[in-house]
Simulated assay, not measured.
Amino acid sequence: MTQPLWQSLLDEEARQVARQLADLLPGPLHNLGLQGVRDFAAPLPPPRSTTMAAVRDHRVGVPAVLVREYCPCPSEQPASPTVLYVHGGGFTVGSLDGVDELCRLIAAGAECTVFSVEYRLAPEHPYPAALDDVRTAHAWLTANAAALGVDPHRIAVAGDSAGGGLAAALCLDLRDRGLPQPVLQLLAYPAVDDSFERPSWTEFADAPLLGTEDARWFWRQYVGEAGVAPDVLAAPMRAASLRGLAPAHVITAEVDPLRDDGEAYADRLAEEGVPVTRQRYRGVFHGFFTEVDTFTAAGTAVTDACGRLRDVFESGLAANQRTSMPSA
């Protein structure tokens, strides 16, 4: 049997996981159907758990959105920089538990508080329900910053896959409503386009875990069977302009149908004057960023992301100190 061309690109860890996935999935993921996909994607208990000073659940807005707070430091510390994290899962699966350890690692590594959003899932709640929930969580966070011990001038947004697309859409929405931008948008292989036409969609059509037809299926759950984005906030690459958006750190996986879309989005941001750092991680496939106990590259990517977050948080703190200094 001929091996797919991408097989030689995977590192040993990824090849082993790909073999395990092939044994579990005799065909494309979406062939399992909605409930089957959700059962398959349900998170297992994490093998480790990074200790936090506190973990709290909040229910905010109407309808209520569950937001989980991760505090790495005692509450008597000064106002904390913050990340609003949006999980992935094709807008259809995924949960707070699936990114629990990742959020703990970001909180510890970037020395910040993390708020993770449990948004409503498609197809029961199609676009724009998920984005509405992310908006609600962000508005609550900014409005209640003082009570939460959060520095309102040092809030970043982050997400992986569908969550990366939602984080990017939030930045566009804030800009278009004349509201302040986050200090950083951290986007891991974000779902930002619905054209499915860049080379990686063909090159990695049968990649492990998520192939091209799987991605199309997830997209239809989100926007409807016609598969057409109702507006630019569903597919941020469609925006006429990306000027004025938050600085970005874009993470992609080498073997991933979404790879070229994420990198094209990073290119557009840079071309339109947005500061961008980007990193393609070799030898891994879609979904690696959240699997910190499986892929060495995930640990590297999280460490790199935390370094980028610390940089912008320190810059934001310095700027706040300058603006608060009394004039001579």
Rank of each mutant, 00 (worst) to 15 (best):
D193Y: 06
F204R: 09
G211W: 00
S195W: 09
W217I: 10
G211L: 07
E213S: 15
F204G: 06
V223C: 11
R175C: 02
L172D: 02
C171K: 02
R198L: 10
L209D: 09
R216N: 00
E197S: 15
D173I: 10
L186D: 00
D173S: 15
C171L: 01
L186G: 04
D214P: 07
E225I: 13
V223Y: 03
Q185R: 08
L179I: 04
Q185N: 03
F218H: 08
W219N: 03
L184N: 01
A215Q: 06
G165L: 04
F204W: 09
A169S: 09
P180H: 06
A205P: 07
G224V: 15
L186T: 08
V192I: 15
L170N: 00
L210N: 14
D214T: 07
E213N: 13
A215S: 12
L170I: 05
W201I: 08
L184E: 06
L166S: 01
D206P: 10
E213I: 13
A215V: 04
P180T: 07
A167C: 07
V183I: 14
F204Q: 04
W217K: 05
P190T: 07
L186Q: 10
D176T: 10
L187I: 06
D176A: 12
A167P: 03
L209M: 15
R177K: 12
F218A: 13
